[in-house]
Design a protein around this nucleic acid. Structure first.
Lengths: 336, 336
DNA sequence: CGTTGAATTGACAGCGTTGTCATCTTCGCT
DNA sequence: AGCGAAGATGACAACGCTGTCAATTCAACG
């Protein structure tokens, strides 16, 4: 392994001091344009990379953001991760993964210990960890910046979200436009804000169409395939069967389709089914699932970008809302 | 945020020098037992955590392992990640994620740049990156330790694998035992060793059952759902249709089931379908998929453990083989 | 052309740990 | 007791970078 190129070598090559190279590298102000160019050229020529530990030690920063998660969906997480890594790369930051057990009594201990050990400069929170009051309080105490993805209380923090209520409402409009009036809903995990928002969109959709809300048509779920199966078993065996079922996510919708097929029902001729999230699986089941595309990768990227900017500028950052897309596929249709 | 406890504080509390504390922390030899106990007590009392960057800077180690991947399966990756994180935690190591584009002409540049920037103490390679000759050669040059998960050439490196050929063979035995004689196979991505091993198991199974190999019954695939769809379309439209299809992974098997249903075939009454990997999806489609459980999380953990041990002891490490399990479910059965 | 304040640059001391090497103990043996 | 070797401990200089603050250059103005 070749000897490491140090900032000193770059400084010499560019004919400036180490400190000036440091300034260029960290995009600090008060460097003349021609100096900046000259230094950058030397950096490129020598293919210099600052030593992360040295930077961190001297600069009292870790150049680390921690991604906290307790989310059963690998698809969702890998998308978020890809987005966060994207953003980190551009800013010479690193990401560390922090799998956590949200419900556990040792949750806060695990977080404290992670923070003490790794000293991240900021955190990215994913649902449902976005909504742990004890955590948020502690982070404020520590003055540790964090960005939340789809948190419940969006007024109060920086991060990114989509308008889930409106997306669910749009989905309902779609079902109504196909002629459905008896529409069932399987709720998501009660700890996730998404469950409430999607339910709200469902109710808004009913109201807009002048359909009275029927509590029998709304059943509990928890975002898992199995809970979708259970929900579908309840809904599809009602005396007066719904003609469409809006599951609060794709995994549950897949469960619904499985049950429907098992009961000898055709999808969508006998019952329309739709989900939410646009997971890869939604295209891999038969029939392909009508769903809402949630741009998770972009959300990861944007959350990380917001966070890094906030860290650098030491400001508060804002909550961004980005667009979703309805994916109308073959699992919904008029009654056949 | 409280002031950081430093090694100096611990040294003072224990009445020894910083260096001695350092020795205790790093389990170095030549410390008297009573000193070790006293120092450890001080460490615990002060809840001291060494500063990772300082350690890294002074010790010329990064305490980082890099996980290299270019694998389209989020499930697989998240499992491996969970295992690797498990192992790292016990050894005060960190993991960094390195998404890579295996086919790209800039592949090696990306790796070089990652290594130069992050200076990991070791790498964990996942398929198909396990089989990039240029990479392996370079790592040897750099004397950088790496552990491979399911690499092609298992004699020559440290890591972990399952006996995929035998697992595929077992699956064939299962199909044969159900009475199938016309069994199709959809191959995996040609860059993955798994594709070859699973095909070999398929052929071994045929041979064992005395069934001649029919090239028409083996079609190309690339581990994606869509390629499974294409493969199934070819196989299920042969004049003489196979009664069972063994897809080289679950995603493709899901594609096969989708096509079968679309063609009005019943699974498993008209055609049995099985896959490989035991992804969560294999339980979420209808009917539930017969498959091989690959213990990815354990494989991640074991690979990381081997790697960390090798780094510490500066030795070569070995290739471990761990057991798989057949999951017999409803997508396979006798002809109905 | 000198003066002044702002913009730019540099010298140098840390940051918190470990490696090196010197020193001090301890122990076994004569 | 005296000696040598091995074991235990400590002093101190790195590690490669950034923060601080002083020094220098520059631009604008009277």
């Amino acid at each position: 392994m070749a000897v490491r190129v140090r900032i000193e070598d770059v400084a010499e090559a560019a004919g400036v001091s180490m400190k000036t190279v440091s300034r260029v590298l960290n995009r600090e102000p008060n460097v003349r344009e021609d100096t900046r160019v000259r230094v950058q050229a030397a950096v490129d020529a020598l293919n210099y990379k600052p030593h992360p530990s040295a930077r961190s030690l001297a600069g009292h920063k870790s150049y680390l953001v921690a991604l906290l998660y307790d989310n059963p969906s690998p698809n969702y997480l890998m998308e978020v991760i890809a987005g966060v890594l994207d953003a980190c790369e551009t800013q010479q930051y690193n990401m560390m993964m922090c799998p956590l057990d949200f419900g556990s009594p040792t949750f806060m201990n695990a977080v404290e210990s992670m923070i003490a050990h790794s000293q991240p400069d900021g955190l990215i929170l994913t649902p449902p960890i976005t909504d742990a009051p004890a955590l948020l309080k502690r982070l404020d105490e520590l003055e540790l910046a964090y960005a939340s993805i789809s948190p419940r209380k969006q007024k109060q923090c920086m991060g990114v979200a989509i308008d889930e209520t409106r997306a669910a409402f749009d989905m309902m409009q779609h079902l109504v436009s196909l002629g459905h009036r008896r529409i069932g809903h399987i709720k998501g995990h009660p700890e996730h804000g998404a469950s409430d928002w999607r339910l709200q969109g469902y109710r808004d959709g009913l109201q807009k169409a002048g359909i009275p809300f029927d509590p029998d048509l709304v059943v509990d779920g928890e975002f898992s395939f199995e809970s979708g199966v259970r929900g579908a078993e309840k809904l599809l065996q009602l005396r007066e069967r719904p003609t469409a079922i809006f599951a609060a996510n794709d995994d549950m919708a897949a469960g619904v389709i499985g049950v429907a097929l098992r009961l000898g029902l055709r999808v969508p001729e006998d019952v329309s089914v739709c989900g939410f999230d646009n997971t890869p699986m939604s295209l891999q089941i038969y029939p392909p699932l009508t769903t809402v595309h949630q741009p998770s990768r972009d959300m990861g990227r944007i959350a990380a970008l917001e966070l890094l900017t906030a860290i650098r500028k030491r400001d508060a950052g804002k909550m961004l809302q980005i667009p979703y897309t309805l994916k109308l596929r073959q699992s919904t249709g008029p009654l056949g």
